[in-house]
Design a protein around this nucleic acid. Structure first.
Lengths: 231, 231
DNA sequence: CTCCTTATGTACCTCTGGGTTAATTTGTCA
DNA sequence: TGACAAATTAACCCAGAGGTACATAAGGAG
């Protein structure tokens, strides 16, 4: 991985170690940054190569072409986020706290993974072409729906959730707010100021998202901020 | 604008009319499609030129360079959508119906303007760089906030809205759902099936968005679909 | 009619960026 | 220890895309 920049710099006797795993990982890390920053067509292979500790040839050696690299980047970032989501255990919480917890966790995980958001935006610009091609991504999406399904069933059984509460709709509502919060920060704050993107603004928004989601499925839900305006 | 493809095709005596407005409009229409489809870096000037009724030279004549063209496209599509929004008059509706109406209108206008959505997505990938540069766009965003402010004030005065109802937050909530609905259709339906993107699914979602938004600000709000699951 | 500005078409230039070729080093197994 | 595959480097190729030079037609003013 190291170039031998000899002091004399004459013989160019390069010496290096074989370390395919590290090289691949290094390439993917840099490529993720670049694709997330500039998109598929906007990212530049020469630039990616330059930022890695290895050479352009290695990118083609391991990933075939630009699209292959992008595909790997996409699958890697998807699986990383979904695994993070899978960590969360709400099976031992009552339905309403569980739902609150899931919503907050989704909101937070989006905030903490802007690269994922950007790559999904880019995928949508490409009509999800590469997500569709992927064999690994479809499997990853079951976990969150399963959790919501469980919560809904328990909630309906105990009578605290409306009978028309739907796991997929819940996921859609939570995702839409959480995703937009990150994806459209730039245009939104440019157009309307950044008051919702200060630390306090985000705190309030996070609470509002919980209220929004719970409000649609919890019978007789009342937000816990009854009257006062702001701190 | 018309090329004179002479039958003999020898003398190439091209004949054309001066029509700058139409040429510009034609270029912008095609460019909007191309930028919306492929992004700033993904769109191809030669391809845009080929699809217009004029030549590449004209693009540079009127818009300077690729970025200039993109900037014009962006401003044009922004002003088109915001003008559409401005048409809507809710001043003579009671606060709650007005809020419902505004929410529904936002949802619908997003569905009906996928190119706008795609260009805003692209802008966000570029960190709103070109929106920030624009002189015309900032002015366009006041209208919707003004309307929401009016509704909030009336609603609070008459006691039907919570005192912490905030116009900007309301706009954020409505936008997030409406925007995500269109922007992430490709990845969402790929991952979770297209049940929310059928005609019925969209109808239900639209209602849910209204319930979500009103639920956070209307005192004692109850969705009007009390118990049954689906038709 | 002539001149001038605006508008337009054609052909071309340049360089970037995705991708490749060929040669070299590393490590391993007989 | 020598051969062989895997890993890596450096240098190169070239199509294509952004952008330009140049010539010329359209249309209006005087």
């Amino acid at each position: 991985m190291d170039k031998d920049t000899d002091t004399a710099g004459q013989k160019r006797k390069t010496t290096w170690k074989k370390d395919p795993a590290a090289v691949k990982e290094n390439i993917l890390t840099i490529a993720t940054e670049e694709f997330a920053a500039h998109g598929l067509s906007g990212a530049n292979i020469n630039e990616i190569a330059r930022k890695t500790a290895t050479s352009k040839r290695m990118i083609y050696y391991y990933f075939g072409d630009k699209e292959g690299l992008y595909q790997h980047v996409l699958e890697r970032v998807y699986s990383s986020l979904r695994n993070e989501e899978q960590m969360l255990n709400v099976a031992d919480l009552a339905p309403i706290p569980a739902l609150r917890r899931l919503t907050e966790a989704t909101f937070d995980s989006h905030v903490n993974n802007p690269q994922f958001i950007r790559l999904v935006m880019i995928e949508n610009i490409h009509n999800a072409e590469y997500v569709k091609k992927s064999k690994s991504i479809p499997k990853l999406n079951k976990a969150i729906i399963d959790k919501l399904t469980d919560v809904c069933e328990r909630g309906k059984a105990s009578g605290v959730l409306r009978v028309d509460a739907d796991p997929l709709e819940l996921h859609w509502m939570t995702s839409s707010a959480s995703f937009y919060n990150v994806s459209n920060m730039a245009t939104f704050s440019t157009s309307f100021g950044d008051s919702l993107y200060t630390e306090q603004g985000q705190k309030r928004l996070r609470q509002r998202v919980v209220d929004m989601v719970l409000g649609t499925v919890v019978i007789g839900y009342q937000p816990d901020t009854p009257s006062s305006n702001c701190a």
